[in-house]
């Protein structure tokens, strides 16, 4: 079972949004980065499949120099090696550009499975994995909560809306987009971190000729639509006021 896992580096969850002067992208220099949440679950799932079926796990990321950090983390958690597609401008990229780059990077390696997260926390296209499947000619399924390998077939549990699920089978090779919560994450051990230092991060160049199919004209703070009554004061004062509002104005308690 040779598995590629696509990992995106995104701003940390507590990052306070700041837009650049042109109003077209975020101010990159203010940002600290981490692994996109569902991608961490995708990596964990790949490691578990490898433990069960043998094979190897390769972490892949497209981005500038800084993405080496999330790849090193993936290696420390147990990935065997990594591929870094060097790409300076994430902001000018869409899912077509990234999927094109990922397809070029993994195409010749004969992976049985390619795992991605279902969505990125920054651009949030919810497209890259599925576009990648089409570019590779692989079958695919999305929003996956369980994976079972049965020789040349994979059976997956798809999450549907409102607490519904569905099992779907398809031939390998396949691309699966993984939902957060599919498993419980392991953390890197000191041993893993040491071992990662000896593992390979292969750098490859961005393939030529990939054009984005969308373009941000303007990026801005959301416009407020609803008027929330913000209750101020010390915690005790605010609590008192809120209780009064709920009892006397809203009458819900």
């Amino acid at each position: 079972m040779n598995i590629a896992v696509c990992i995106k580096q995104v701003p940390t969850r507590d990052w306070q949004p700041r837009v650049n002067d042109g109003g077209t992208w975020i101010r990159d220099r203010d940002v600290t980065f981490e692994t996109n949440e569902p991608d961490a679950y995708a990596l964990e799932e790949a490691l578990r499949l490898k433990e069960k079926h043998g094979g190897s796990v390769v972490a892949c990321s497209v981005g500038p120099e800084r993405v080496a950090q999330v790849l090193r983390e993936a290696l420390a958690r147990g990935a065997d090696r990594a591929i870094h597609v060097e790409h300076a401008s994430v902001e000018a990229s869409d899912a077509f550009v990234i999927a094109g780059a990922l397809a070029a990077a993994v195409r010749d390696e004969r992976f049985d499975l390619v795992l991605t997260g279902l969505q990125s926390d920054d651009q949030g296209f919810a497209q890259t994995g599925v576009v990648l499947a089409e570019r590779l000619g692989f079958a695919h399924a999305t929003i996956i909560m369980e994976v079972q390998i049965e020789s040349s077939t994979v059976r997956v549990k798809r999450e549907l809306e409102g607490g519904w699920f569905q099992w779907v089978a398809m031939p390998l090779p396949a691309v699966l987009t993984i939902q957060s919560g599919i498993n419980h994450l392991r953390y890197a051990t000191l041993k893993g971190i040491m071992a990662a230092k000896k593992k390979e991060i292969r750098k490859v160049a961005m393939p030529a000729g990939l054009a984005a199919r969308q373009h941000i004209v303007r990026l801005y703070a959301p416009q407020k639509v609803k008027r929330t009554e913000l209750i101020t004061g010390s915690p005790a004062e605010a609590a008192k006021t809120l209780v009064t509002r709920l009892r006397e104005t809203a009458r819900v308690i």
Binding site: P11, P17, V19, I26, D121, D122, Q123, G124, A211, A212, R213, Q214, H215, I216, V217, R218, L219, Y220, A221, P222, Q223
Partner: peptide, 25 residues
């Protein structure tokens, strides 16, 4: 937009920011 073409509004960064986006091609 000014030139008559449609601009599409979508959330980014988990709803922390909003983007006006134009399709290309």
């Amino acid at each position: 937009s000014d030139d008559g073409a449609l601009v599409f509004v979508r959330p980014m960064f988990q709803g922390k920011l909003t983007a006006d986006v134009r399709p290309q091609g």
